[in-house]
Design a protein around this nucleic acid. Structure first.
Lengths: 119, 119
DNA sequence: TCTCTAATTAGATAGCTGTCAACATAGAGA
DNA sequence: TCTCTATGTTGACAGCTATCTAATTAGAGA
């Protein structure tokens, strides 16, 4: 099992995009995550995994949903893995993937409209 | 002023990614928005515009923040415009951009963790 | 009208990316 | 060990994209 990179940086964390201008580094960091989601196949994979019973899905569950070869699915899963959005774990013959909800939550927080700073 | 496309589709709206698998169409629709944000320059442009005083920024305000030529900035603004994330308006010599907060809010809602369906 | 500046468009190019076929690896079980 | 199946990796290729220079359009003002 290839290892995923620990890209869940804490630096560019949760301040809304709309409050203060992003630094160049924060923008690079965030763009890596958005790049990982900037493909319809990867979005569907993410959604299939996240919404699957038990919060995880075997690759075999995923492949059938697409008109793509197994290597292509594998490639997309690798992109999602390396971005830190999902993790894969081998159990016997099959590999199971699950999402990292914190990463999705962080992105959601970044996009949310700023309510303004109280006081 | 080139017109922006009305890509703010209402179809793939606000159900969290994590609740039900996205349809292929929804995924294509969403991926267009994520693609527009999958670049550090565009993320910073978005952030600069959104956080600028008055909620809008002149192109002249934006160009200085980057080591890029004006045509390159213009290209990125066009991508953001065509994705529906921002709009531009010419007033006299200058062109002012502002973000569409609903689109950001929609993306934020899609990424948020599903709290589950009550009842 | 002429000229200056702001912004965009056009065309070119290097680098990235999604896809496939072919091959490799990892367990399970005979 | 041998074989079968599930995944992943490699290498290749077409299409997309970020960037630049050069040319163009739009408005302001002399």
């Amino acid at each position: 099992m290839p290892k995923e990179l620990p890209l869940v940086a804490t630096d560019a964390c949760c301040a809304p995009l709309t409050r203060d201008p992003l630094t160049a580094d924060q923008a690079v960091e965030l763009s890596r995550l958005f790049k990982a989601m900037a493909d319809p196949v990867r979005l569907r994979l993410l959604s299939l995994i996240a919404s699957h019973a038990g919060g995880e899905a075997c690759v075999c569950d995923l492949t059938d949903a697409f008109d793509l070869t197994a290597p292509t699915i594998s490639h997309h899963l690798k992109v999602l893995r390396e971005s830190g959005l999902i993790t894969g774990e081998r159990r016997g013959t099959w590999v199971y993937y699950r999402v990292h909800p914190e990463v999705l939550a962080r992105l959601s927080a970044v996009l949310i409209a700023d309510a303004g700073v109280p006081a």
